[in-house]
Simulated scan of single mutants.
Amino acid sequence: MHIFFIFLFCTVFKAQQSDVSVIKYEDLEKRIQQEKDKLLVINFWSTTCAPCVKELPHFMEVNAEYSDNQKYKMILISLDRLADKERVLKFIKNKNLTAEVILLDDIKRMNTWIPRFDQDWDGNIPVTLFYKNGTKFYFNDGEMSKEDLKKTIKENLQ
């Protein structure tokens, strides 16, 4: 029984990030293209956004279901300020976020890069984008239910 708990602790500890990549929009765009062989789920969120925080637990449940699939990847894009990086790291640990988290340090140019993701995006979060073969195929504006998230992944993952 003790061995099980040690294994469980090590597994959870290993799954969490100890640091966050800080990137600009152009680097995020390149990163999306690098993952073009996968079904890519990109979620924009912030630690101060109540709907974002509310949806993250079921995002992590769904991520756990598919994390062993080589054709799947979830990336959480934090829109917190760079000055709040420590808060983001603490949030990742406290909420046991197992998907990769990236801090997008490009708030001053939001009006430039937001429409490049989707013309209908008004800048509010949460927003979830789905890519397949490097091309966006679905844009979810606002909170996304666990059922809709699973359905979108399942229908497009091959």
Rank of each mutant, 00 (worst) to 15 (best):
F5T: 02
L82R: 15
A50Y: 05
L76P: 02
T135Q: 15
F44A: 06
L104G: 03
C49L: 03
K24Q: 15
F9H: 00
I92Y: 02
Q119W: 12
Q158L: 11
M110S: 15
F91E: 07
A64S: 14
T48F: 09
E143N: 01
T98Q: 11
G123F: 05
G123C: 09
I153V: 12
E26D: 15
L157G: 07
G134V: 11
N63L: 03
E86A: 15
Q158C: 01
M110H: 11
L103E: 04
M74I: 09
V12Y: 01
V20H: 09
L149R: 02
M74K: 03
K90V: 10
I102L: 15
D68Q: 13
K95M: 10
I3H: 00
K93C: 04
Q33E: 15
L8R: 00
Q158W: 02
K151T: 13
F137E: 12
E65A: 09
D68A: 09
V88T: 14
I23H: 09
R109Q: 15
R109C: 01
E147P: 03
K38V: 05
L103A: 06
I42V: 15
K14Y: 13
I92P: 02
Q34F: 09
S18F: 14
E61Q: 14
S67G: 00
K146M: 12
W45V: 06
D37R: 07
D122M: 12
G134R: 06
I153P: 04
L28N: 03
D84I: 02
T135I: 13
Y25V: 07
K24A: 15
K54G: 00
K71R: 13
T98I: 12
V22H: 09
M74S: 12
I42H: 01
P126Q: 06
V22Q: 14
L76F: 11
L39T: 01
N96H: 14
N69Y: 08
G134P: 10
I3L: 00
A99R: 02
V53S: 07
N43D: 13
A15C: 14
K154T: 14
Y131T: 02
K95S: 11
V127E: 02
G142M: 05
K150V: 11
K73P: 05
E65M: 07
N111E: 09
K38E: 07
I125C: 03
N156A: 05
M1L: 08
R87G: 04
A99T: 06
Q34H: 14
V62P: 02
E143K: 05
E100A: 09
T128N: 07
D84C: 02
T128Y: 02
K95F: 01
E155Y: 08
I3F: 00
N43T: 14
N94Q: 14
E86I: 10
I23E: 08
A50R: 10
L79C: 08
V41W: 02
Q33C: 06
I32Q: 03
A99P: 06
M74A: 12
Q16N: 11
M1D: 06
G123E: 08
A64V: 00
N63E: 13
M1P: 01
Y66E: 03
